[in-house]
């Protein structure tokens, strides 16, 4: 592993671009191809690449396993709670986005952003948690 100089330097060169590309895909998903699902997978892929080249322990220092496994339900919870404000304030039904702003398009843009953030958290942490589970198993 220590001898893979080109692989290590190449990974270090590529990684920042992958990590910037993921939020770009996430936030630009309203205007071009992309969204929470794709961005989540890209983040997970970046950390998996790091884990493959630099070792699992290094990756776990960047993205601690305990944190990742707590984020898995947090994303679903964020998504599910995005529907509550409309329901509790009697201004609409579950997952109506009208309450997030005064102007229709503005409110719905916020709603979509919150929901997509829930998706990106769930997808990226689930993919990473699955990878960690398989990688841990191989070391035992």
């Amino acid at each position: 592993m220590k001898l893979d100089l080109i692989l290590r330097v190449g990974t270090k060169l590529i990684l920042p671009f992958i990590l910037i590309f993921a939020p770009y895909v996430h936030f630009h998903g309203d205007y071009g191809p992309g969204g929470g699902f794709q961005a989540g997978v890209i983040i997970a892929a970046a950390i998996i690449l790091y884990a493959i080249v630099f070792g699992l322990d290094a990756a776990k220092r960047v993205a601690p396993q305990g944190l990742i496994e707590r984020l898995v339900p947090l994303g679903v919870l964020l998504y599910a709670s995005a529907g509550l404000p409309a329901m509790l304030s009697n201004k609409g039904r579950y997952l109506d986005y009208g309450v997030f702003g005064h102007h229709f398009a503005h409110a719905h843009e916020w709603g979509i952003l919150i929901v997509e953030t829930g998706v990106i958290i769930t997808v990226s942490s689930t993919m990473l948690a699955i990878f960690y589970a398989f990688a841990d198993r191989s070391r035992r």
Binding site: G29, D30, Y31, G32, P33, G34, G35, G36, Y79, A80, G83, L95, Y97, F104, A105, H108, E109, G111, I112, V115, E116, V119
Partner: peptide, 21 residues
């Protein structure tokens, strides 16, 4: 309604939010 131009995102997160949940 001047929703996001990418209709796929709009349908995914807004029109069919229950599905995606």
């Amino acid at each position: 309604h001047e929703m996001p131009p990418n209709v796929v995102t709009a349908v995914l997160a807004d029109f069919r939010g229950y599905d995606t949940l």
